[in-house]
Design a protein around this nucleic acid. Structure first.
Lengths: 214, 214
DNA sequence: CGTTTGCATATTGGATCCAATCTGCTAGCG
DNA sequence: CGCTAGCAGATTGGATCCAATATGCAAACG
């Protein structure tokens, strides 16, 4: 019963279609199609699309409609560079503020990723992975930073799921996350930032490779 | 002319109302009121509001409507901290890429700020001031960075205009801008970043003071 | 006297309808 | 044979209408 309004329901569903790739980059989004698929009129669909436009998931061409955004290789590098700067700041602020309960919550989520990985549940993995990292980022207590980081993560969600698909990457992720948790426990800011950077770099090369295959 | 669609016209007008403070922080935005004031229906108004919601200019409460966002002191500090990180990156990338024509354009805009200041034209000053800084930022060739920075600038636009109101600040701004241009001419990244930081810090203290007066 | 219930009004959310524009195809022209 | 004009269908943008919910006030109740 979460969505009291239809626009939110549409938004949630469109997001799902976008991250799973069912709505592939480059394809136009027909308002009528989306509307009747979800059993609503075009009005809430248009409002949801405006939100997605602001997040960069779709591009809007007046009188022509909305098209699923395509990510260029340069755009991808830029996203990861900005993540590097902002995630470092988030970790810098968050680590000294972390309480034990939060660290344990983070570790618990890391375990969930592993469990989801064993049953090859990609959707759950990406969702838990996000939780893992944002539990840490949010602990900085900087809502605007969190929001900006979420935007950057959103932009590459479609492409990042390919990273989890590879079995070799899964063990790597598990190892990286454990290393991050260790750094948090030790309250070691430098180690946390460095580990997070290595972790991120591993995924950017994988995603870049996936992007080139298009 | 420019706005082929009504939603864009509404968006532009609402932005103006927000930046000038005619729509003060905390006041609810009545869709009907905006609609009839601009001679359109509520539909394009709602789409424009969704964009502004994404930018953080208004907050949306389902079934209750939109309210002009208020900026807390913590939020302000956060915005400026993020600007510090991202503007440094923009300058780092942009300065080595700057050609003489761009530097002269930047200097020309600095002169325009001064001219506008002499005739006490606050609106023109803030607009030119923005041009001055974003000519530099955009030169980094990182569109997503530019977009993020614009969002951060937008968030504090209402409050920043008070800074330009003070005559003492005007001469300070003139001096700072000249120092920035000098650093650009010398292709001195460190100096440019340091100057920009001092410049920004001066405004944050002024804006914080203005905020407390609320 | 304070609290709560019920009702009238204001306001939002969504559906439907119509106008404007874009797309693709066909036919006419040079 | 290629190119342009124009027409029909598709699609978007916007207006209007109706339903659902929230708000404010007043009267009834404890």
């Amino acid at each position: 019963m979460r969505p009291p309004t239809a626009q939110e329901a549409v938004l949630t569903e469109l997001r799902r279609l976008l991250v799973t790739g069912e709505l592939a980059p480059g394809t136009p989004v027909r308002q009528e199609t989306v509307a009747e698929r979800l059993g609503v009129s075009r009005v809430p669909v248009r409002e949801a699309l405006k939100v997605l436009e602001g997040e960069g998931h779709v591009v809007y061409l007046p009188r022509r409609g909305y098209v699923v955004a395509e990510l260029s290789a340069e755009d991808l590098t830029e996203v990861y560079r900005l993540r590097e700067l902002l995630e470092a700041e988030a970790i810098r602020v968050a680590v000294p503020r972390l309480d034990d309960a939060t660290i344990e919550a983070i570790e618990a989520v890391a375990h969930e990723i592993d469990v989801a990985g064993r049953r090859r549940d990609l959707a759950a993995m990406t969702a838990y992975n996000r939780d893992f990292h944002f539990l840490l980022f949010d602990a900085a207590g900087m809502p605007r930073l969190s929001r900006t980081l979420r935007q950057l993560w959103d932009a590459t969600d479609v492409y990042r799921s390919v990273y989890f698909a590879g079995g070799a990457n899964r063990t790597r992720v598990k190892h990286d996350h454990a290393a991050i948790v260790d750094a948090l426990r030790a309250r070691d800011v430098r180690a946390a930032i460095a580990t997070q950077k290595r972790h991120r770099d591993a995924s950017v090369t994988a995603v870049t490779a996936a992007l080139r295959r298009d």
